[in-house]
Write a protein that binds this DNA or RNA. Structure first.
Length: 432
RNA sequence: GUGGCCGUAGCUCACCUGGUAGAGCACCGGAUUGUGACUCCGGAGGUAGCGGGUUCAAGACCCGUCGGCCACCCCA
């Protein structure tokens, strides 16, 4: 019989790792809450048309990376490849756009790509979107919020903010025409990929890695020269606000986001610690998108961060809090009446000390083997119920960690107080 | 979609230029009556990803296939 495996690029996240994920999610949620953002939860599946219309027909995502399938009624559905489109759809559908909305979401996204470090077919993002603010103050707020998050996670020394303005749609049309015209004259000197992109997505040639192409780009038209007055002024204001907040950044004129709906401010947080997939968070403004999807002309801006990449970065930088042992208390019993007594006593103990993690040994075995398990569990104490304890209505508390502490046999009624008293001050750290 | 590297016990790996598989860790049991860690003794666990080929003989060589990793492309 062939064993069934998970789909390529779709990974299980095991208990060892979920600690780290929860730490990340908790920290992000706290920062988002501190800026007044509210959580929104959208479906994972949407009509295919939503993504075609928002992300752009000629993007790689739409052309070859979407998980699309027909519903039973013949309608084409798609597993969401990103979160913004669904969020915009939800905001329109639920009439949220009459006032400013600060939203965030978290969950899985799906793109059919070859897996590699920091990239899988089911990956997970936390994103934030703001609707209804046309001014660049909100651009700065979003960026400041992410900067705060990196500090909270202790990774701010290892991420760099790259910033650019890609202007209005009209600005980009004009620039694109100039760029294509220039590059077409030197087509023979372009690398193969870039020659192809000349037809499909010329702006992407700007961040080509080929030396020959890079040399050509030295003399190429610069996007910044094509920006209209408002784009320039807004970008300057974003920079000014970041400067005032002491958030450093690098203006990268060749930073172009891959999705069609972006305009004006775009930004990426990148690290050099994750190999080829170094972008850990990215976003930008998308002022035309709401209208494009059938809503009123409400401006929007947002970002998304990749949870896998952030967890990898936290691991690489050893910026994670110390792992907790699996249990605080491990309970050993000799079976029979001792097991009955232990069950009853533990239920009371859990009620009395809700934060205490109590693992009861199951499956029998000698005291010796049970205590081995107790030791391996990392528990601070073993509680022991044997025939003697049952007869006397007591329990034996055996310290497993501190040297020199003696075990004691206590009346059942005193156990909770004893454990509470000897519990050490919580030394677990939240990050750095 | 393209390229490189890799698939031997639960994990990390070894078996050198082909002679029908081993270590460490983990796991299980034991070392006098109900007590962990350290130590000692013992045990279980692999159709060498799968299929084909070359050969007297293949885990080792060749081909295919599936899977993994990394990179290109693209992106979080």
């Amino acid at each position: 019989m062939t064993t069934i495996r998970a789909i390529r690029g779709m990974n299980d996240i095991l208990p060892d790792e979920t600690d780290r994920w929860q730490y990340l999610e908790r920290t992000v949620a706290e920062v988002l809450a501190s800026y007044g953002y509210g959580e929104i939860r959208m479906p994972i599946v949407e009509q295919t048309a939503l993504f075609r219309r928002s992300i752009g027909e000629v993007t790689d995502i739409v052309e070859k990376e979407m998980y699309s399938f027909d519903d039973r009624n013949g309608e084409s559905l798609t597993l969401r490849p990103e979160g913004t489109a669904g969020c915009v759809r939800a905001a329109i559908q639920n009439s949220l756009l009459g006032t400013v909305q600060r939203l965030w979401y978290s969950g899985p996204m799906f793109r059919y790509e070859r897996p590699q470090k920091g990239r899988q077919r089911q990956f997970h993002q936390i994103g934030a979107e703001v609707f209804g603010v046309p001014t660049p103050d909100i651009d700065a707020e979003l960026i400041l919020m992410t900067a705060r998050l990196w500090r909270a996670l202790g990774i701010d020394e290892h991420v760099e903010l790259q910033l650019n303005s890609i202007g209005s749609s009209a600005d980009r049309q004009a620039f694109r025409a100039a760029l294509v015209s220039y590059l077409s004259e030197h087509q023979a000197d372009l690398d193969e990929d870039s020659q192809r992109r000349l037809l499909t997505n010329p702006l992407r040639i700007l961040d080509s890695k080929h030396p020959g192409t890079r040399a050509l780009l030295q003399q190429a038209p610069v996007l910044t020269d094509y920006l209209d007055g408002e784009s320039k002024a807004d970008f300057a204001r974003v920079c000014e606000l970041l400067d005032a907040a002491s958030v450093s950044y690098v203006v990268n004129p060749s930073l172009v986001r891959g999705l069609d709906y972006y305009n004006k401010t775009v930004f990426e947080w990148v690290t050099d610690r994750l190999g080829a997939q170094g972008t850990v968070c990215a976003g930008g403004r998308y002022d035309g998108l709401v209208q494009q999807l059938g809503g009123k002309p409400v401006p929007g801006i947002g970002f998304a961060m990749g949870k896998e990449r952030l967890v990898l970065l936290l691991e690489a930088l050893e910026a994670l809090p110390a792992a907790l042992p699996a249990a605080d208390v491990y309970v050993v019993n000799s079976g029979g009446r001792a097991e009955i007594a232990a069950f009853a006593a533990l239920e009371s103990l859990r009620s009395a000390l809700p934060g205490l993690r109590i693992v009861q040994h199951t499956g029998g075995g000698s005291f010796r083997s049970q205590l081995k398990k107790a030791d391996k569990s990392g528990a601070r104490w073993a509680l022991i119920w044997g025939d003697d304890e049952v007869a006397a209505a007591t329990v034996t508390v055996k310290p497993l960690r501190e040297q020199g502490e003696a075990q004691a046999t206590l009346p059942l009624a005193d156990v909770a107080a004893f454990l509470l008293r000897s519990r050490t001050p919580d030394t677990t750290t939240e990050g750095s």
